Simulated assay, not measured.
Amino acid sequence: MKLNKLERYIVRHPARLWLQKQLEQPLLLGLFNHNLPSVEHALEIGCGFGQGISLIREGFGAGTVTAVDLDDEMLKYCGARYQQKSWLSLFQADATRLPFAANSFELVCDFAVFHHVPDWQAAVAEVFRVLRPGGAFVIEELYRAAICNPLSRRLFEHPQQNRFNHAELHDCLRANGFDITNSRHLWGLAGVTLAIKPSGICQRDYSAGVSAGV
């Protein structure tokens, strides 16, 4: 699902970028208790205007970053922002049908994207598939109470059915095989979670049809 005009404005506003840099980035990095894993290949689902790409590359120290989005405008913006960066690959893709082989990434990040995905449970299963054993899934999400209320419905365009809260997200993660190692939430409105794909779990490695890169 794509962002409406107001949400595009908000996510690009300097105040939003400041909050991401000064507050959200330390919170997400802190999920690892200052013991960041070595990350060679990382994936961001829903790259938006590219701030998450910077966090993954500079904060998590990823060797390469792959980013996907449904919105070609977002992909074009990121392509221009990070032009000629050999460590970045951009693809147009659906979070529920990721065009990557199983066990491809050591890190996958969802920075407030799954609340836009109607079948978010399928997206969780896809993340588990493409993560390598021992890989980390870093999640920052808005929950049902934040998006299924009269004000949010008036201002934004979010799916209103099949939404989730902190506990329901964790239940889905565990049902797909993840171990949850750290999490925090704010009054049931939003939360951050670190989920790990256990070592020793290795799915059949196959190649999906890859969308055209940007």
Rank of each mutant, 00 (worst) to 15 (best):
residue 106 E to A: 08
residue 113 V to F: 13
residue 99 P to H: 12
residue 72 D to T: 12
residue 65 V to C: 05
residue 46 G to E: 12
residue 119 D to Q: 09
residue 95 A to I: 00
residue 40 E to I: 00
residue 96 T to H: 03
residue 60 F to L: 11
residue 48 G to Y: 10
residue 125 A to L: 09
residue 64 T to R: 14
residue 71 D to A: 11
residue 116 H to E: 13
residue 86 S to I: 01
residue 47 C to M: 13
residue 133 P to M: 04
residue 64 T to F: 06
residue 59 G to N: 12
residue 83 Q to S: 15
residue 110 D to L: 12
residue 60 F to I: 04
residue 66 T to P: 05
residue 62 A to C: 13
residue 106 E to L: 06
residue 102 A to H: 05
residue 74 M to L: 06
residue 56 I to F: 05
residue 64 T to E: 14
residue 78 C to Y: 03
residue 56 I to A: 01
residue 61 G to W: 12
residue 52 G to P: 11
residue 54 S to E: 15
residue 71 D to L: 03
residue 104 S to V: 00
residue 104 S to G: 01
residue 102 A to W: 01
residue 92 Q to E: 13
residue 133 P to W: 04
residue 133 P to C: 06
residue 73 E to Q: 14
residue 49 F to R: 03
residue 128 F to Y: 15
residue 122 A to R: 15
residue 96 T to C: 14
residue 110 D to S: 15
residue 39 V to D: 07
residue 39 V to G: 07
residue 110 D to K: 12
residue 111 F to C: 07
residue 79 G to Q: 15
residue 133 P to D: 03
residue 64 T to G: 04
residue 118 P to M: 07
residue 51 Q to G: 11
residue 68 V to H: 06
residue 69 D to Q: 09
residue 53 I to K: 04
residue 48 G to M: 11
residue 65 V to L: 04
residue 113 V to C: 14
residue 38 S to Y: 13
residue 90 L to C: 07
residue 44 E to I: 07
residue 75 L to I: 09
residue 76 K to I: 05
residue 116 H to A: 12
residue 78 C to Q: 02
residue 99 P to S: 06
residue 131 L to H: 10
residue 63 G to R: 14
residue 94 D to P: 02
residue 56 I to E: 00
residue 105 F to V: 02
residue 114 F to T: 04
residue 55 L to A: 11
residue 54 S to C: 09
residue 112 A to P: 05
residue 96 T to G: 00
residue 125 A to W: 00
residue 86 S to L: 08
residue 86 S to M: 03
residue 97 R to P: 01
residue 45 I to L: 15
residue 131 L to Y: 08
residue 98 L to Y: 01
residue 132 R to H: 08
residue 69 D to V: 06
residue 100 F to N: 04
residue 39 V to T: 13
residue 124 V to K: 04
residue 65 V to T: 08
residue 53 I to S: 00
residue 118 P to N: 07
residue 85 K to A: 13
residue 65 V to G: 00
residue 87 W to C: 02
residue 54 S to Q: 15
residue 63 G to I: 00
residue 44 E to G: 02
residue 81 R to W: 07
residue 128 F to C: 02
residue 106 E to H: 13
residue 62 A to Y: 14
residue 129 R to Y: 07
residue 111 F to W: 15
residue 91 F to M: 06
residue 72 D to H: 11
residue 74 M to H: 14
residue 78 C to I: 05
residue 38 S to I: 08
residue 119 D to M: 02
residue 87 W to R: 08
residue 133 P to E: 06
residue 97 R to N: 14
residue 71 D to V: 01
residue 63 G to M: 11
residue 56 I to N: 03
residue 102 A to D: 09
